[in-house]
Design a protein around this nucleic acid. Structure first.
Lengths: 347, 347
DNA sequence: AATTTGTTTGCAATCGTTTGCATTGTATTT
DNA sequence: AAATACAATGCAAACGATTGCAAACAAATT
């Protein structure tokens, strides 16, 4: 029976000793005789004793739970981050409480509220697309809760962040397209309020500028939802209306890039000969498409691991707060596949 | 400050009343004057009071946490189930504690151990590929913990399960291939110890048998990892060695089916004219491939929701244990796309 | 005025554990 | 034999909340 779970008191009663002695014996405190320790441990096994983590939490004011708040679970990138988080958390004895906001601000706020009652030891957050104002985060920071933001970084002074170098990733991607001889490179951006979108767009612009190429504003369209339907629709409209038409697309994410591929297929353009495509995230399916989709990798697992290690170090006060780097930036890598290889054809 | 969190005692001290009165006032117990209730609630807001869920858990012997144990988080199907679980759990005031086993039995066991100390209210489990023996589950069932298994169902008497009709899904998929005129249909199975793999294989066999077609054992190969590399390798070997060669493949999962597509592309077979392909799960990327991959959908979100509703009903004793259906079976749906449309060509 | 009734509030135990301090018992020193 | 030291154990408070029961007080009834 669940409620028949043995406690420290049961062990004490069986052995006719006080429960403080039992507690100390189980923890190998000094000042308890070997004999007693042995007997206590044997009885613990016999009664199938398990320490009650809830009672411990109450006593220690620590729950060994960390909250993870992500926009969506069904999302390749976030699921890799979650995987990295879970791995480190478990290794260090913490539980991961998972919540998703479905990109909704009010869900984000209510999740945080709920977690605050739960004596969470810390937060790992990637905020929603709707979030443009960060006071709900600042409140909990002020209350002394450790928070680490990953991927989507808020504009909060001294927030602790783990992200990838979006600018560099985008810069490299566009530079690669230029080196392949594409001359009218379009960009499908992410939601404008997300820093990652801004940074990727900045990378796009600087790559063009540094290679002496003109920046045409009509070649830059916002693709806020980042679905393939949206990407397809926008790509079709650009191919249809712009003159000269784009001969390459750099998309803010892989889904949108797939949309572009579909648009090209539908309008009869050959990839990569007539149109080159590069995505962002390097999702699993990049290698499964035909042609393979060139993409900028985001090291999700590593991001999850780093963020969690940092958070737990802070929680366990292993690091002085003023020695914490307030931002860890991970490197991206450009995986070049057929979708952008106009010059040297490989798979 | 985190440890400066106001408690019920702080409110009591401020108002110079006892903390039991505060507790009752906050909960709108009868027998507390309106005047007192008002003052208490005002003070609660003023002090930014939040009930301590840990203390409540200890008192009530309920944590409002449920444990979710899955083989992998970075997996389209499981991530959809998790999403459904999270949605219902949050709606009903529960937290989701997420653990992944990475398909390892020892991780599965240690996760369960860890959860048992955590006063979890119940479990939602899909076990690992390595798990062939279920005593670690039976132990916790015997201890009175509610468990619901989803997708991967153990061979335990009276276990409560939520699954899809794998047999029917496979039967329909293979029948569809037959109706398209394919005559040598191969099957890449999943790990033989998983019931889902067995059921899908059974569906394959019965579909052939019921249509009066021979079953050739050499056309059935185990694809235990379910990766596209593995699928590709096995498909290539079958295409190379069997006579007559397979003219269609029914794969246990979509990744393996993609591997088959790659194999066909590499060996110059046209899809669907020369070889038809059907996968299982209907992952996102099925629509993004060219040709689109026909696949049997598994309603992951719905599975997560159903399983969670059932679990919470049991936890909250809303249902009598003997009235619980010990198995809920959800329907699959065959999404027919180009990869298997030899007769009536559509997208 | 004494008794009953009802309203409002407080006391104290409880959940399972940790831990500072006090107590007991035994061995050692003088 | 008395004093001291030390090892081993127990007591009780604490963590933050809930809740059965008792107490206090006021109002209503006799």
């Amino acid at each position: 029976m669940k409620n028949g779970q043995a406690t420290i008191k049961d062990i004490a009663r069986e052995l006719k000793i006080s429960f403080s002695t039992v507690s100390r014996a189980l923890k190998d405190y000094p000042g308890i005789s070997e004999e007693t320790k042995r007997k206590v441990k044997e009885m613990a096994i016999k009664l199938n004793y398990r320490p009650n983590a809830i009672a411990l939490s109450l006593r220690k004011n620590r729950s060994f739970n960390i909250a993870v708040i992500v926009p969506e679970v069904v999302h390749f990138f976030f699921s890799t981050v979650i995987s990295g988080i879970e791995e480190i958390a478990k290794k260090r004895g913490y539980n991961v409480i998972l919540t998703q906001t479905n990109e909704k601000l009010d869900k984000e706020k209510s999740s945080i509220e709920a977690m605050l009652s739960n004596q969470i030891d810390g937060f790992l957050i990637s905020y929603s697309k709707e979030t443009t104002e960060f006071s709900h985060f600042e409140n909990i920071i002020d209350q002394g809760f450790p928070i680490i933001f990953f991927d989507r970084i808020p504009d909060i002074p001294n927030s602790i962040n783990v992200k990838v170098d979006d600018f560099e990733g985008a810069y490299n991607a566009v530079s690669h397209l230029i080196s392949q001889g594409y001359e009218n490179i379009a960009h499908l951006t992410g939601p404008k309020n997300l820093k990652i979108s801004q940074e990727r767009e900045r990378g796009y612009r600087e790559a063009l500028a540094n290679h002496g190429m003109p920046i045409r504003e009509e070649m830059i369209l916002e693709c806020p939802m980042g679905t393939n339907e949206e990407g397809k629709r926008l790509a079709l409209s650009m191919l249809d209306q712009l003159n000269p038409r784009p001969d390459a697309f750099f998309a803010n994410n892989d889904m949108a890039a797939v949309g572009v591929m579909m648009a090209c297929r539908d309008s009869g353009y050959r990839i990569p000969e007539e149109i080159g495509i590069v995505g962002f995230s390097n999702w699993q399916f990049c290698t499964m498409l035909e042609p393979g989709l060139t993409s900028v990798s985001q090291p999700g697992i590593q991001m999850g691991k780093k963020a969690t290690e940092l958070l737990l170090d802070i929680i366990e006060k292993k690091v002085e707060l003023d020695t914490i780097p307030n931002s860890i930036t991970l490197n991206t890598e450009l995986f070049i596949r057929k979708s952008s290889m106009r010059l040297h054809k490989k798979s």
